[in-house]
Design a protein around this nucleic acid. Structure first.
Ligand code: FES
Ligand code: FES
Lengths: 147, 147
DNA sequence: TGTATACTCTACTATGTTAATAGAGATTAT
DNA sequence: ATAATCTCTATTAACATAGTAGAGTATACA
């Protein structure tokens, strides 16, 4: 039941951009990578992905960089996780050509996985990046800030 | 957030053995594999694993086979899942040498993953194989039984 | 005591996924 | 022009998953 590094990085990146939201600074891939200790070329791919997903926009050229294309308030954790990671249902039978259950209708497990998925969804769909930005900014006041 | 086939098979196998609990029939690997449509040699490994985990016992030789070593009531879904699949926390940072967060103490995500894990645990630790056996036996009355 | 039956154990392999790396190309501010 | 920066596609190393193979061990029973 692990999330991948890709998702881990994506979430932290969005949060980082969230911290800059409103300012018109657009952090570069290089800066973000250094800041969050993510391999630069890997982050590059992830950011392109997030762009295709409509989460971020970019500016090219000399003063280029990345910024959120939605308000932090409108981006939930769930949206990002599902986009990068795929469906959250912890089931083999979600997979494309699952052949594990002869009769999917009478499977006693299916309903359980559904409940698990729902309770997970309830959490991750209820948290926005605005919430997280506030949390981080709260901490920032005390210690030097660190995602 | 998928479970593996290994876990899928393990759960169905325990349920299958649960359906035989109390009788002194001990289904063979061959029978279970056929019944549940699991590759026989793969199931063999899984059953050995479940044996090491203390979930099942076996009898060798002519009238050999497998049977539960605990009452279905005492085996929760959570126990089996955790044993086969590992920890349920959906985090990269559970991993052995996770190097994603510079400062684990100030990570705003950690707490979220914990909440997700807890809500999942609440479900899968609250369901025993006795519950599932009853469900299946209920259905069995109506249609021909099928996990 | 032999033999068939069934579990036990270790090793191997094919396939796919993940995490990253590489490098050439396109855009833009100055 | 050119340096900085994003864009795109391909490739790769390491690992995990799902499954296969085969030799070995225990047991019931004739
Ligand atoms: S496990 Fe998903 S249908 Fe049975
Ligand atoms: S994501 Fe686990 S400590 Fe930050």
């Amino acid at each position: 039941m692990r999330i991948t590094y890709r998702t881990d990085y994506a979430l932290k990146t969005i949060l980082e951009l969230g911290l800059h939201f409103g300012q018109d600074s657009a952090p570069t891939i290089h800066e973000i990578a250094e800041r969050l200790d993510i391999p630069e070329k890997f982050l590059e791919q992830i950011l392109l992905d997030l762009k295709r997903g409509g989460f971020v926009e970019s500016r090219r050229g000399k003063i280029g960089g990345y910024f959120l294309s939605q308000k932090p308030r409108e981006i939930t954790l769930g949206k990002v996780i599902r986009f990068i990671e795929g469906p959250i249902e912890p089931v083999a039978c979600v997979g494309h050509n699952y052949k594990g259950c002869q009769d999917i209708r009478s499977c006693v497990f299916r309903n359980i996985w559904q409940r698990v998925a729902e309770s997970t969804a309830k959490i991750i769909d209820g948290i926005t990046f605005e919430d997280l930005v506030k949390q981080v900014k709260g901490k920032e006041a005390v210690s030097s800030y660190s995602i």
